[in-house]
Simulated assay, not measured.
Amino acid sequence: MTRTILANARLILPDAVMPGAVILQGGTIAAITPGQGVPPGAIDLAGDFLASGMVELHTDNLERHMRPRPGVDWPHAGAILAHDAELAACGITTVFDAMRVGSIPNEAPDADYDKYARALAHELAEIRARGVLRISHLLHLRAEICSETLLAELDEFGPGDRVGIISLMDHTPGQRQFRDISKLAQYVQGKYKLGDAEFAAHVARLKALRARHGDAHEAAAVQIAHRLGAVLASHDDTTPEHVATSAGRGVRLAEFPTTPEAAAACHAHGIMVMMGAPNLIRGGSHSGNVPAAELARAGHLDILSSDYVPSALLAGALILARIWDDLPRAMATVTANPAAASGLSDRGRLEPGLRADLIRFAMMDDIPVMRETWVRGRRV
């Protein structure tokens, strides 16, 4: 088995940062040794940080590569490979690729709401089987409650599809993420160039869909998540009542709660809270919801997601390190905590016996500079 020694690094361990070396063998971490020495044959990391590879639970990045402009459908194999390479370069070694299930055929303002997840999951599986992907890919099915075809699309997935997360996404205008409809208008009208009358018709159509299908869609999505063995996530919880409902369904992960009250209720129910790193970096939510930094200072932030900017994940963790004055705690929001929330016990920490998924980075002022990424002990 190939043996690699990464020496003279600043190791970010679960509870400390210390100078040392990591020995990789057979795709796992074989040992960790303290000190700044560089044994013969070791790779000298010159004092750079060495951390566990990052685990990304919620990213729109694959969809961005597939649809780089409204109405442009990029070849999917190329999009998957470019997405995979970008994440590896950003230090993400495990990703749950977000795919929307639930469509509104021939009615949405753009073809963005046509069905695509089942075919894309097949393409991803075929490329994975050819051994060309750099990092580990699992599925995150975003169950769009406000749609027509959710149940039929979910039924197309089975136990062999590596579905790790199913999130309940309710984007009905006037509640949750878009309780401020002016923010929805700004987003939708800007993206699709809709006039006021067209936007009003779009809102009415979505509300009607929610009234017809919402309750049945939610109940069935919860059952299917349990059948597939997937972690169930809520999305945009806004009130303690939303959170109580989530807890009753067995939700373990809350994506982007929109208020401090919702985030506090999540912690009271033992639900881990995930917020977007772009929110942290920009200083607030683009939808006008609670700033991630506010939840961090309150002790109600557990996991970061890159959401729509992969490089934001590490940069966001280092902002948390400054807020908390605790680098190991901050790095856990992008390593150990998302691994634990998604049921992956074999990665997310620099510990002997775990997967040799690691990242090396330096700092340029307050900006991280990624140097190298290893997956299962192989530099990618």
Score class of each variant (00 low, 15 high):
residue 264 A to E: 11
residue 253 L to R: 07
residue 366 D to Q: 14
residue 94 T to S: 14
residue 7 A to G: 10
residue 120 L to A: 13
residue 245 T to L: 13
residue 26 G to S: 05
residue 336 A to K: 09
residue 111 A to H: 15
residue 113 Y to D: 13
residue 307 D to L: 10
residue 56 E to M: 12
residue 82 A to S: 03
residue 94 T to A: 10
residue 308 Y to N: 06
residue 209 L to R: 00
residue 254 A to P: 00
residue 251 V to L: 00
residue 27 G to F: 04
residue 318 L to G: 04
residue 80 I to V: 09
residue 323 I to V: 12
residue 62 L to V: 09
residue 356 A to P: 01
residue 162 R to Q: 10
residue 157 F to R: 02
residue 180 D to K: 09
residue 74 W to C: 15
residue 243 V to C: 02
residue 147 S to T: 08
residue 97 D to E: 14
residue 151 L to H: 11
residue 166 I to P: 06
residue 63 E to H: 01
residue 295 L to E: 07
residue 366 D to G: 09
residue 131 G to V: 06
residue 185 A to K: 03
residue 203 V to H: 11
residue 317 A to L: 10
residue 9 A to W: 07
residue 362 A to K: 14
residue 196 D to L: 12
residue 216 A to N: 09
residue 105 P to V: 03
residue 334 V to G: 03
residue 13 L to H: 06
residue 366 D to Y: 01
residue 105 P to C: 09
residue 107 E to Q: 13
residue 65 H to I: 08
residue 380 V to F: 14
residue 118 R to M: 05
residue 299 G to V: 02
residue 36 Q to N: 14
residue 63 E to K: 04
residue 285 S to A: 05
residue 368 P to H: 07
residue 20 G to P: 04
residue 116 Y to Q: 08
residue 101 V to L: 10
residue 357 D to T: 02
residue 44 D to F: 04
residue 92 I to F: 01
residue 280 L to C: 09
residue 365 D to I: 08
residue 146 C to L: 04
residue 327 L to A: 01
residue 92 I to V: 13
residue 137 H to I: 01
residue 33 T to R: 15
residue 79 A to D: 06
residue 329 R to Q: 09
residue 270 G to V: 07
residue 340 A to S: 15
residue 67 R to I: 13
residue 244 A to M: 04
residue 90 C to L: 02
residue 258 T to L: 05
residue 58 H to Q: 07
residue 115 K to R: 15
residue 331 M to E: 01
residue 273 V to H: 11
residue 157 F to L: 06
